[in-house]
């Protein structure tokens, strides 16, 4: 439980973090809340040579309305999402999903940027942001680019982010009165999702149903075509590729995706207005 030795640098600004990334190249890794990175380092599954700490950059910690969207700084802690009155009103799915992450300690350390960058298909926020149709803003020496989350993930723990890019912001639409629900199935309260389903405004995001968070497109299309909740939910596992592990077989995950989608859609229908 002792990581391989590494160098530690605390960046004082995003720009400095970027130039440190450029300076150290592939050997460097950003450290935000550390709640995904440090466990894998302690198990020696990762051994970065340089850690660039962006965890204390206040410029990355904000939640504000910008037109039809809400802009969230990448360094915003799960706890801040959970407790945000703004989000509760404008985008209630996100705080609901954040509330289910781990336990209070984890939520007080982990960040939305870290969660999205890490790319664990079982995590909660990527599925929620996917259902929201959010975008991810990345900054590098080449400037800033915005990537829709639908194009962000390329596989398990992998994204289109370049090594010298910092996620600076996550943008989600103001969903206002649209129906929404977050259904997370766990063995224990503080566990990662066996399967989770995020629903908002007729869009459905799935956690842990494949190598990346997935949209239940077939179910969404059926809904749009006027199918009943039951009929649509029955399609929720189409085009998914879940794994089998200790708590669940792939078949069971498919079943859960269908059941949870049905429940989430039902809740969302009740919440709309």
């Amino acid at each position: 439980m002792i990581p391989v030795g590494f160098e530690y640098v605390r960046a004082t600004s995003v720009d400095e973090a970027i130039s440190l990334l450029v300076e150290h190249g592939e050997e460097a890794t950003l450290l935000a809340g550390g709640h995904s990175l440090l466990p894998v380092m302690k198990l020696r599954l990762a051994a970065p040579e340089v850690l660039i700490d962006i965890g204390r950059l206040s410029e990355l910690s904000y939640i504000r309305v910008e037109g039809d969207e809400i802009a969230i700084g990448a360094g915003t802690k799960h706890r801040a999402l959970e407790a945000s009155e703004l989000l509760a009103k404008e985008c209630p799915l996100l705080p609901a999903a954040a509330h289910t992450v781990g336990d209070p300690q984890v939520r007080h350390r982990g960040t939305i940027g870290g969660s999205l960058a890490h790319g664990d298909p079982a995590s909660d926020l990527p599925a929620a942001v996917l259902a929201l149709g959010g975008t991810i803003v990345l900054r590098s020496p080449r400037g800033q680019r915005t990537v829709p989350i639908t194009g962000f993930y390329t596989g398990v723990f992998s994204t289109v982010r370049d090594p010298d890019e910092v996620i600076v912001e996550v943008r989600v639409p103001r969903t206002g009165g649209a129906g929404w629900a977050y259904e997370k199935f766990v063995r224990r309260a503080n566990d990662w999702a066996i399967v989770a389903v995020a629903v908002v405004d007729g869009r459905i995001g799935l956690a842990n149903m494949g190598p990346t968070p997935l949209r239940a497109s077939a179910a969404e299309a059926a809904l749009a075509d006027g199918a009943s909740i039951e009929e649509a939910a029955a399609l929720a596992d189409q085009a998914t590729d879940p794994v089998s592990d200790v708590p669940a077989t792939a078949e069971y995950r498919r079943h859960l995706a269908r059941v949870l989608t049905k429940r989430a859609l039902t809740t969302a229908a009740g919440a709309a207005g």
């Binding site: 063995r187 224990r188 309260a189 503080n190 990662w192 200790v246 708590p247």
Partner: peptide
Amino acid sequence: LLEEVRYDDEGNPITATFADYAFPSAAE
């Protein structure tokens, strides 16, 4: 309801961390 130490067929423990080994908390 929850706890079980498991091995795969090669004898590798597959529940050797607290993320995998489901001992309970008060919430359960």
